[in-house]
Design a protein around this nucleic acid. Structure first.
Length: 302
DNA sequence: CGTTGATCCTGGGCGC
DNA sequence: TGCGCCCAGGATCAAC
């Protein structure tokens, strides 16, 4: 579940290796993940210079001369840099405690669906076990249409309290579902949605229309806070996430509720519960995030 | 229009 | 030990 902090972690790790470089050979494994004809992709990007590497929500964007090459990691997508001057690690390593499947720099395997070799040496490997990831190639002029349905981007002028409050409307769905909607705030997924709701003291099943203004304001800040912490800790490696070096992040150690069902709340000791909202698991502290809300909006704990 | 549910996919964990 | 079953879920699309 690479969300905004994980994609940003990959972006930061990859940029120094690839920006300014030229694309040489391209190898395609399972073309299912490609949203462009394989031969067209190869034709169009071979020889192109990588002018920049940016991010929008959960999308990683390579700026080429005439195109944008765009990655979405889905559930298990990994984009790593393979340095020819470093040796590959042998297969995959299992973390002794977390059981996390991990690897440092690795050679392509059966889950590696795209290899982009660079002229100066080195290559980018896109690996995706569940193949929910996608690779797009679009003309530069198409970029605004491509992202037109994406919502506010954190840390840009678009992400402001006034716009945030307006997006709520008088809707009936659960706040958790709204947070997962990429047309609301771009980049928030299941992990950071649960973490933000905990930080704001809001029960995930609360209806959007029932939230007080003070609660919405808390959530506005909480989203920024949990995303920032996620980036600072190199992303959350709950299962498959690895950074551009093939190494895991550290933010899983910082999680307050996600994946902590049955464990004690770090803030009050109550056991963390898990419920399902719109087919998605939601973890929360029943004491810190009361179903009926609070008499006064809780300030972010931690 | 708003909202929910099915769908894609594979590995891991569990029960028997 | 091995098999079958179920779960995880981002985005999209169909259906209510």
């Amino acid at each position: 579940m690479p969300e905004l902090p994980e994609v940003e972690t990959v972006r930061r790790g990859l940029a120094p290796h690839v920006v300014g470089g030229f694309i040489d050979d391209i190898q395609v494994g399972d073309s299912k993940i490609l949203q462009v004809e394989p031969h067209r992709l190869i034709e169009q990007i071979r020889g192109q210079k990588i002018l920049g590497l940016t991010r929008r929500g959960k999308y990683l964007i390579f700026e080429l001369e005439r195109h944008y090459l765009i990655f979405h990691f889905g559930m298990t997508g990994q984009l790593t840099f393979r340095d020819p001057n470093r040796s590959d690690s042998e297969g995959f390593k299992r973390h002794p405690v977390t059981g996390l499947q991990r690897t440092l720099q690795h050679a392509p395997d059966r889950h590696t669906h795209l290899q982009i070799h660079l002229r100066q040496g080195g290559s980018m490997l896109f690996r995706d076990i569940r193949k929910f990831g996608k690779v797009f190639l679009i003309e530069k002029g198409e970029v605004s249409v491509f992202f037109e349905r994406l919502g506010m981007e954190p840390w840009t002028p678009d992400y402001n309290l006034k716009a945030f409050l307006q997006k709520f409307g008088n809707r009936k769905l659960a706040i958790k579902s709204l947070l997962l909607d990429q047309s609301f705030v771009a980049g928030v997924g299941n992990i950071y949605a649960d973490e933000a709701l905990f930080a704001a003291g809001i029960h995930p099943a609360r209806k959007v229309r029932s939230l007080r203004k003070t609660e919405k304001e808390s959530l506005f800040e909480a989203i920024l806070q949990v995303l920032k912490r996620g980036i600072e800790h190199g992303g959350t490696s709950f299962r498959d996430f690895v950074n551009s070096d093939g190494d895991k992040g550290n933010n899983q150690e910082e999680l307050q509720v996600y994946g902590r069902k049955g464990e004690s709340c770090h803030r009050c000791g109550t056991l963390i519960q898990r419920i399902v909202i719109s087919q998605r698991s939601s973890s929360f502290c029943p004491a810190c995030q009361p179903r009926g809300g609070r008499s006064r909006a809780g300030k972010a704990p931690i």
